[in-house]
Design a protein around this nucleic acid. Structure first.
Lengths: 164, 164
DNA sequence: TCTGAATAGATGAGGCCTGAAATGATCGGC
DNA sequence: GCCGATCATTTCAGGCCTCATCTATTCAGA
């Protein structure tokens, strides 16, 4: 058994002939995402001592300099509100984001990147994009475009099925 | 804003024009997986009071009636060994799997489904497949095949990039 | 046979995440 | 102005997951 070569054992590789194709599609999708996520997570940790959820939250804020409310972060990151509370708490403690009370709604908070947060995010974002480019670089540009298009259709299909 | 229709706000929808296509591809992939995973998780919980990691572990065992060692489970599920230990402990406590000592290696354990575990898994697997079929049903069969093929290439690309 | 390296699994601290319940604030209709 | 419904957020218990570290076992070579 040679460890220098990637071991092709994962959920999807083991699907048996009897499995229907929808299931195999799902397992392969899951495998791709898991592999990429593990890779990105490891590099983010190694080079910046940062976790993926923190990076994702900061990425949303970077796109919205005016700030986002907790609930909007929750929707965009597709995680529950309680979770956003926890991660935001940490980032506030570390001085990377601020929680401000908007004048018009005392229930809400607006989260924004601090200058330090923005600087740190920008350092990470550059590496992050390079990693992702490398991971998908084995596909030719037309293949990537086609995959992007098909995933768009899949997304619509899933959203339709989910909304009954 | 009409909540009866699925809200199209997620990580990927917000990608700005400046983002490179590799990054958008990654975000869209992540969105699709998250959506499907959330859906499957919710139905598994609602109908069987079971979590996805437990289901996944049992699914591996179902494909291998002779049993799998902890380390093999870990590789196939793409999670760390410590994690497999925890989930297996629970399933053993609930009588769904067994841990047996193989005669040839006293370091290892072989995990197998019990008859009760197999029965429970089979009940879940049927529903599970139906959900997945429904989620991807918005794509025509040729589109699904093409997506499957492109994801296979992506997987190889990622594996190549990961092994330096 | 002995010994050091590698391997299988367990353990523990810490972070992520969910679902359910709780707290306050806002809003619409009366 | 009041009241119930709704909404934004927090809190908490519990499960998942990683990394680092530990123990016990196996293996390869002197």
């Amino acid at each position: 058994m040679n460890d220098a070569v990637a071991i092709p054992v994962d959920r999807e590789s083991q699907a048996s002939r009897g499995d229907h194709e929808a299931l195999r599609l799902w397992l392969r999708l899951l495998t791709c995402t898991s592999l990429m996520e593990a890779s990105v997570r490891a590099e983010l940790r190694r080079d910046f001592d940062c976790t993926l959820p923190r990076f994702d939250l900061m990425a949303q804020l970077e796109r919205h300099p005016e700030g986002l409310r907790m609930g909007e972060l929750s929707r965009r990151l597709m995680v529950t509100g309680g979770n956003v509370t926890g991660i935001t708490d940490q980032l506030v403690r570390e001085g990377l984001v601020t929680r401000a009370a908007p004048p018009d709604d005392r229930r809400a908070f607006v989260v924004r990147l601090t200058p330090a947060g923005r600087r740190q995010f920008e350092r990470m974002a550059e590496s992050h994009e390079a990693w992702v480019v490398r991971l998908v670089g084995g596909l030719a540009a037309p293949e990537r475009r086609q995959l992007f298009e098909l995933l768009g259709r899949l997304k619509r299909s899933v959203n339709r099925a989910r909304s009954h």
